[in-house]
């Protein structure tokens, strides 16, 4: 039998584990500098994105690829409509349109309709799906969890408000995509640049400007109607 005196003396020791646990929690709750920077970026991004019902912006695209002697440049329009529609349309009939509508991913020439036989369908490509979900999440209202879901993040040092998203190591998307870099406007929180680095060496940079948020529905519908024209 344990003596009463011994028992009474040992009682204070019972408080040690909870204290250690509590201190551990306190330590765990302390964000790292990287986490603080990530939270800052998301807060800045969210200050604009959380109000977005639809969005239209000017788009400039540059692709650096070994297929071409010089980088490919084009201009166009980006249209987003909550919850999951994103259209990147080049100017002119010689350009192409990228349509992301839920899980449907299509690339078709501006002169053709989305259902044309020449349309490239990428619905079943995991890397394309991963990137498409990121692109939609960049403009969709939310707390950023959709953006960070199934992705690694990195906030680079230096000037500019940048956020890097990377596919999970060892995932199917990782074999095709190295990183997606997002640059935010330091004042408004709009996305001004998206850079996609592909694993095979290509790099696509999308520049965004002239953001117009929450346009009348008719304007968006009018733009979408041009896709089938």
């Amino acid at each position: 039998m344990i003596a009463r005196r011994t028992l009474l003396r040992s009682l204070p020791l019972l408080a040690v584990p909870p204290l250690v646990y509590a201190s551990g929690l306190a330590t765990a709750e302390e964000p790292t500098p990287q986490e603080r920077k990530l939270a800052n970026r998301l807060e800045l991004w969210g200050s604009y994105a959380r109000r977005t019902q639809n969005l239209m912006a000017r788009l400039s695209t540059r692709r650096e690829t070994s297929l071409l002697e010089e980088p490919h440049h084009s201009t166009g329009t980006l249209v987003f409509r909550d919850p999951g529609l994103l259209v990147l349309r080049d100017d002119g009939r010689q350009g192409s349109t990228t349509l992301i509508d839920g899980d449907q991913l299509r690339i078709f020439q501006n002169g053709a309709a989305p259902g044309d036989p020449s349309t490239t369908v990428a619905d079943l490509r995991p890397a394309a799906q991963w990137l498409a979900r990121r692109l939609v999440a960049m403009f969709a209202p939310g707390d950023g969890s959709a953006l960070l879901n199934d992705a690694r993040t990195h906030v680079p040092k230096g000037h500019g408000h940048r956020l890097e998203l990377m596919p999970p190591v060892g995932s199917a998307a990782r074999r095709m995509i190295r990183s997606v870099s997002v640059v935010l406007d330091p004042v408004v929180g709009t996305i001004t640049q998206i850079a996609v680095a592909e694993a095979q060496g290509d790099r696509v940079v999308l520049g965004l400007s002239d953001h117009r948020q929450n346009l009348p529905d008719e304007d968006v519908e009018a733009f979408l109607a041009t896709l089938d024209a």
């Binding site: 695209t61 692709r63 297929l67 490919h72 350009g95 394309a128």
Partner: peptide, 26 residues
């Protein structure tokens, strides 16, 4: 070839499974 060049502007082009190096004329 013009269509291929047009598709290059899409950020999804390199991930869509299309392999222009092996089959530029589809």
């Amino acid at each position: 070839v013009d269509a291929l060049r047009a598709r290059l502007s899409s950020p999804l082009h390199g991930l869509s499974g299309e392999d222009p190096r092996r089959d530029p004329l589809r």
